[in-house]
Amino acid sequence: MLMQINHIVPIEHIITLSCILFCIGVMGVLLRRNAIIILMCIELMLNAVNILFATFSAYNGNPDGQIFVFFIMVVAAAEVAVGLALLVLIYRNTRSVDVSLLDRLKW
């Protein structure tokens, strides 16, 4: 079990940091057109969640959150593996990773 230690950094600061990281990730997914950068932004969002889980876990003295972080890491790795494979597939067919090229399907 974790010990309750005196935390120097107030919990609000860490929550704010992770919210900012999450928002940067969301804006990146919505605004950028390069598929690799969108992938990186999704990773950023997942890492913001990781920070949040680890923080709550440490400040509340409940180790469950840190176990959850491991699950998120593993799943994120699997997701990136599939995502990069898809990008390679598309690059072979179009010679580009720009998502705005992929507008054959609409309405």
Binding site: A35, L86, I90, N93, V99, L102, R104
Partner: peptide, 9 residues
């Protein structure tokens, strides 16, 4: 391919 990438993102 496009369907896969959209679904993934």
């Amino acid at each position: 391919n496009e369907a896969g990438l959209k679904y993934f993102l």
